[in-house]
Simulated scan of single mutants.
Amino acid sequence: MSRVGKMPIALPQGVEVSIKNDQISVKGALGTLVRPVNALVTVTNEGGKLAFAPANDSVEADAMSGTMRALVANMVNGVSKGFEKKLTLVGVGFRAQASGQKLNLQIGFSHPVAKDMPAGIKVECPTQTEILIKGSDRQVVGQIAAEVRAIRPPEPYKGKGIRYADEKVSLKETKKK
Results as ranks from 00 to 15, higher is better:
Leu40Asn: 12
Lys86Trp: 07
Asp22Gly: 14
Gly159Glu: 06
Leu40Ile: 13
Pro36Thr: 13
Pro36Arg: 13
Pro126Tyr: 08
Thr174Asn: 15
Val148Ala: 03
Thr127Pro: 04
Lys102Ala: 10
Lys20Glu: 11
Val72Tyr: 02
Arg35Gln: 11
Pro126Asp: 10
Ala165Leu: 14
Val141Thr: 05
Gly91Thr: 10
Met1Asn: 15
Val169Arg: 01
Leu87Trp: 03
Val34Thr: 14
Val4Phe: 07
Gln13Pro: 08
Lys134Thr: 15
Glu84Gln: 15
Ile133Arg: 00
Asp57His: 10
Leu30Glu: 01
Asp22Met: 14
Arg3Val: 08
Gly14Cys: 09
Asn45Lys: 05
Val113Glu: 05
Ala119Val: 10
Gly142Leu: 09
Thr67Phe: 08
Ser18Ala: 15
Val141Tyr: 00
Glu155Pro: 04
Tyr164Ala: 07
Pro12Trp: 06
Gly100His: 15
Tyr164Gln: 05
Arg138Gly: 09
Tyr157Phe: 13
Val15Gly: 03
Phe52Cys: 03
Lys115Gly: 04
Val15Gln: 01
Arg69Gly: 02
Arg69Ala: 09
Asp166Ala: 12
Val148Lys: 00
His111Glu: 14
Leu30Gly: 01
Gly161Gln: 01
Lys158Val: 15
Pro36Val: 07
Asn104Trp: 04
Ala29Pro: 04
Ala150Phe: 08
Arg95Ile: 03
Ala73Trp: 03
Glu155Val: 12
Asp166Ser: 11
Met64Cys: 13
Leu105Gly: 01
Pro12Gly: 05
Val72Asn: 00
Asp22His: 15
Ala70Val: 09
Gln139Ile: 15
